[in-house]
């Protein structure tokens, strides 16, 4: 006969195994739902600062050009927040009625994280990707326009990665691969070839 004490031990062990199994499954799901890069927490930063000249690389579907445009915007000091504001300003421009490269309604950027001076992660919202037009050139123009705009803001930037709602996606809208890091120098070379 097994003592009562032993029965408690067995019951406790069985429960522990199940709890651990569920925890393991939970961890696995969580790991799958995140990109393989840690997403740092957004830092609190002043919402606005003095107005500055910023450069946006604006895409034009008609001739597939990517041209620098200077605009003035109030800019905070925090680098991540600066990144978010330039990309938000760029997207706002694409959402205008006279946009040379229209994006879908509701498209926006949640955050831009600078992991180190050379690596930036751009976390876009679901509407940005879900409503994006599908095509090699249209998707390429969007991605290159964001990468080059960030490069203009952060000259030391060498690679950029995209997340949609905090998660890695294979492609922006069926074509351009955004599952990994994009090399900023190669993007600059390739967009030079564009126009």
């Amino acid at each position: 006969m097994i003592s009562r004490k032993l029965q408690y031990v067995i019951a406790a062990l069985t429960v522990a195994i199940f709890v651990l199994c569920f925890y393991l499954v939970h961890l696995k799901r969580k790991a799958e739902s995140m990109g393989d890069e840690p997403v740092p927490q957004a830092m609190t930063a002043p919402i606005s600062g003095p107005a500055e000249e910023i450069t946006l690389y604006v895409a034009n579907d008609e001739d597939a050009s990517l041209l620098p445009v200077s605009v003035s915007s109030a800019m905070p000091l925090d680098p991540g927040e600066r990144g978010r504001i330039v990309i938000h300003t760029l997207i706002t421009r694409y959402l205008r009625n006279d946009s040379p490269h229209p994006l879908g309604a509701g498209a926006d950027v949640h955050d831009v994280y600078l992991l180190d001076p050379a690596s930036a992660v751009v976390n876009l919202n679901a509407a940005f990707a879900d409503s994006h037009r599908s095509g090699v050139e249209v998707e390429q123009l969007t991605v290159f326009s964001i990468v080059r705009t960030l490069k203009a803001q952060f000259p030391g930037l060498s690679r950029v990665r995209f997340l949609i709602e905090g998660k890695t996606r294979e492609t922006l809208a069926g074509h351009i691969d955004i599952s990994g890091w994009l090399d900023v120098a190669m993007v600059a070379d390739a967009s030079g070839e564009l126009k």
């Binding site: 090699v136 991605v143 351009i176 691969d177 955004i178 994009l182 190669m186 967009s191």
Partner: peptide, 19 residues
């Protein structure tokens, strides 16, 4: 127009490859 693009499966092809 021609340019380089991050477009699958071009990276994985072991012959001359264009899209």
């Amino acid at each position: 127009r021609s340019s380089a693009a991050p477009l699958r499966p071009l990276n994985n092809v072991t012959i001359a490859a264009v899209a």
